[in-house]
Design a protein around this nucleic acid. Structure first.
Lengths: 153, 153
DNA sequence: TTATCTGCAAAGCCTTTGCGCAGAT
DNA sequence: ATCTGCGCAAAGGCTTTGCAGATAA
């Protein structure tokens, strides 16, 4: 895991298997193919796209299985959500440049003024032809009340 | 518009009305109450929460109307989506620190290594009790092929 | 052998759409 | 008077859930 996108190496697959075992997950063929598909696909695919790719190797697989395993991988930390805010539209009346502090517990969002952060600065050129529109920094963590709750447990 | 969260001032409401007019939108009571509700609510509410608040003032309003108007406001630029990635789960096998380049046209996501950006640096303290977990910089724009397409039109 | 997983299908959110009446221009 | 928007209800995506048979431990 914790690798740049691309076909996972044998070492990484071994790490995947170890991590499944550590989490008490059975090592099924479907699981491994799904995990390999996600690694091989750049652009952070949606479940449907992963399903399409996996079907090439396991034609009988169901979309439900893909969903279940993605969720399992997210819970285990083998995968991450690109944006934990998906699931419901969230709307912002502040159209000035600013950033967000996002609680991964209760999903509330707090604003952070543009001045509260050193502006992000690119060190490498963007891909040829990419037209930049805006930049948003998202800081993820636990808000005070969610942090207090998770301390108790 | 373009204001920090909070009850919008009379000047801002006037700007709201002007902007509606400029976009050919009728100035209905529902519209204005919805817009005021979004401004007044911090934490970037979901449509359901906005609906609940607006209902206090207009009990007969329907959730559909809230959705339609939020979409209208987004199209007009009066509001923004907190994260344009909502709508479908997107999964990431790379659990190392890195950032994203997101095409607002086709919603594809490209990785940007942690080294490609100057690290973000806080200038102000976080809210009391907030426990930071990770930081993600998202650069929004148009990828080469979407940019080419929108040039043609 | 026992626990877990798969595939299928049904159910559940969240959101959009179509339509006839009401309201804004 | 005309055009746009509202409320209602039905439909549409995306995702989760329940279950019986299959597979891993």
């Amino acid at each position: 895991m914790a690798t740049a996108a691309g076909q996972p190496s044998e070492v990484e697959l071994q790490a995947f298997r170890d991590r499944c075992r550590a989490a008490g997950l059975a090592l099924t063929h479907q699981r491994e193919v799904i995990y390999r598909a996600v690694c091989a696909m750049r652009n952070h695919p949606a479940p449907e796209a992963i399903y399409e790719r996996v079907k090439a190797e396991i034609p009988s697989i169901s979309l439900g299985t893909v969903y279940k395993n993605l969720k399992t991988f997210l819970d285990t930390g083998l995968l991450r959500e690109v944006s934990p805010m998906h699931g419901s539209l969230r709307v912002d009346a502040n159209t000035m440049e600013h950033h967000h502090l996002i609680c991964t517990g209760c999903r509330s969002v707090f604003d952070l003024g543009a001045d509260d952060l050193e502006p992000a600065r690119l060190r490498s050129p963007l891909p040829e032809g990419f037209v930049l529109q805006r930049c948003a920094v998202e800081l993820y963590g636990l808000c005070a009340s969610c942090a207090a709750q998770s301390d108790q447990s």
